[in-house]
Design a protein around this nucleic acid. Structure first.
Lengths: 185, 185
DNA sequence: TTAATCATGTAACACGTTACATGATTGC
DNA sequence: GCAATCATGTAACGTGTTACATGATTAA
């Protein structure tokens, strides 16, 4: 149910359309929460029914009409309440690659290839944190009131991504070494 | 769709009931793939329809009857094919805590508390890797043919968990320091 | 005597993904 | 001329979660 709160959090910064929110997710929360536009529209309808948001139509010419969403007081307090709730779920880790590694003993060659390709992807991911992601966050911070204060927290979430990817990269390298040693013997 | 392959992988070791598989998931793959029994039973029905597994009833006295599942040749080749497929999705990261941190600037106090409780949980998680998890895997390895070979790969998945949790723990400590410094000012 | 273990599932719902439909405008 | 952007969604499906139902046996 965090998607709803992610949406509320962004609407709390300023009114947005579903389209805006989709983009915004992609450029900020995407690192730790991915959301398709179809899902965002669905949640927006539900949230409007629950009176967490309201919407009004904006007629445009030359562009399809927009539906601009705003957070309500009810929504604002639901958000505040959720944000300070410290219950923690480290639960839903679903990693298909690790399933493959787990069952990898019967075919070390392809497991090795798998982990190598994982390593290569991670190197690109780590590079991307610096270039597009930090830059996106910086420019978003400049476009918002109190952005510099908020940016400290946004940066923490990026640091998280960097440290997780870094640890995973180091892990792939250790695994590769182990499997290569095994294959030589 | 990886759940099906997780099930196939375990059935490839030996025939099991849905109940066995649920336990097995909890003690081995749980680190990177969690599955409820209801989901496992559902997948087993689908897989039987697809002829990846077959089942037979075992009558027991004093205990409810079992349905024992076995992997078929079709299932075995589906598994082998999936295992050596190197496509990688680092996609579905869903972390509610990071959503809270992202929107944490308005309430540094509760964000601090949140991250502190995360740190405490992580310390326990890291301790658990050594005691119940390594031990479980070791005893499972001893109960299976070729277990020692396989254990190398199982251990790699545990190493993964340890390194991710370790990196996350270090991250929480950096964040706590930053926020505490901010609160003093 | 109380809880845990064994063993099966169903039902309902929530969340996530993929594919599709529409159609003008702007930039290359 | 072609692709991308803007902007809305629906439909169908797949996956994950929660709650419930049943009921004997065994260990604390």
């Amino acid at each position: 149910m965090s998607l709803q709160y992610g949406i509320l959090g962004l609407l709390n910064y300023h009114d947005s359309t579903g389209y805006d929110l989709t983009k915004r997710f992609e450029y900020s929360l995407n690192n730790f929460w991915h959301a398709q536009s179809s899902q965002i529209y669905r949640e927006l309808s539900r949230m409007e029914a629950a009176d967490w948001v309201t919407s009004r139509s904006i007629i445009q010419n030359g562009r399809p009409n927009k539906r601009l969403y705003s957070i309500t007081e009810t929504g604002r307090s639901a958000l505040a309440q959720w944000l300070c709730d410290a219950t923690l779920d480290l639960g839903n880790n679903h990693n298909a690659m690790l399933v493959r590694v787990f069952f990898g003993a019967d075919d070390p060659q392809s497991t090795l290839r798998l982990i190598q390709s994982c390593r290569d992807v991670l190197k690109k991911v780590l590079a991307a944190y610096n270039e597009p992601m930090r830059a996106n966050i910086k420019s978003y911070a400049e476009s918002i009131g109190g952005g510099e204060e908020k940016r400290k927290y946004w940066d923490m979430t990026l640091d998280y991504g960097v440290s997780q990817a870094g640890a995973m990269l180091a892990w792939t390298e250790r695994c590769i070494e182990k499997i290569e040693k095994e294959l030589v013997e």
